[in-house]
Design a binder for these strands. Structure first.
Lengths: 152, 152
DNA sequence: ATAAGATATTTGCGTTGACAAATATATTTT
DNA sequence: AAAATATATTTGTCAACGCAAATATCTTAT
């Protein structure tokens, strides 16, 4: 009785599961690549730094919204990243409630290599897709996302 | 200074982030739909029950592999689902280490309505994609997944 | 037959993230 | 101007997950 389970049975049978699997693999691949280079950063942290680098300094809440993270979780990530010296919490000038989160110089350097690293992994993962297909994939996902968010 | 931040700046700039967002939205949508019908089930639990229903009884480890869940996490999910009476841990006949996880009759009933519910949400989410595009989306994602798993 | 190694399940531990409450400050209403 | 309301950040709490260790059992090599 050494017949293997049919491979088809291990396939996801719905989009939700497929997405979960792909996402998990990308996160794992990026994190593996990062740690291989001695860059000890989680995927979430990569997203935070990257966002700051691309968009420039911003408040913690806005940053949380942009990376789709809960405000509380953001506070703790900021604690870690600040302790590590890659970003700074600067008090907002007009609004004393708010902060301005900004990358430090070392933070920017880190961000650059991390981004290259992650970009390579993500690029790699799409190796079997030609340029047209890549654009389509992005487009389809964005449409699905839009539909879900404007549930109508 | 009431100019809104450009919408483009809130867009994901890489596939990883986009996937994470879509997945999150699908999970939220499915869970919302479920709880709306009084079906109190998490997305992970839905996947577990669904897998059991589709594939039939199997060991906990195999089930964990199939739904991409850690063994320890599976044990705890099984605890909950068993306490709830939707599945059973039956000792394996030949292998005294192993279990046979099987749905109970109520479990099957639950699974049916849950699946219909989730399928509807997932179907809905792809409303803006025509049949060809849906097939392509699935295909592209599977190819990306395959590439990631056989990293070469 | 015994020892070594592999596999199934469970449990302990640390981390992460969501949700809600607390606090401080801004904004709007009356 | 005081009160009500809204927003930014932080903290507490809880559930879920991954990883590693523990235990039991099976399998393979010697």
């Amino acid at each position: 009785m050494n017949s293997k389970t049919a491979p088809a049975l291990c396939q996801p049978d719905n989009l939700g599961m497929l997405l979960a699997m792909v996402r998990t693999e990308i996160v794992k691949a990026v994190e593996a690549e990062l740690s291989q280079r001695g860059l000890d950063l989680r995927f979430t942290q990569f997203l935070i730094l990257r966002r700051l680098d691309v968009l420039g300094p911003m408040g913690a809440s806005e940053l949380a919204r942009v990376v789709e993270l809960d405000g509380g979780a953001m506070t703790r990530q900021l604690d870690q990243l600040e302790a590590r010296g890659v970003l700074r919490r600067v008090p907002h000038e007009q609004d004393r409630r708010a902060l301005r989160i900004e990358l430090t110089a070392p933070g920017k350097v880190l961000c650059k290599s991390v981004h290259e690293c992650a970009a390579r992994v993500i690029e790699e993962s799409q190796k079997q897709l030609n340029p047209t297909e890549r654009v389509q994939l992005q487009d389809y996902l964005e449409r699905v996302l839009h539909t879900l968010r404007n549930k109508d």
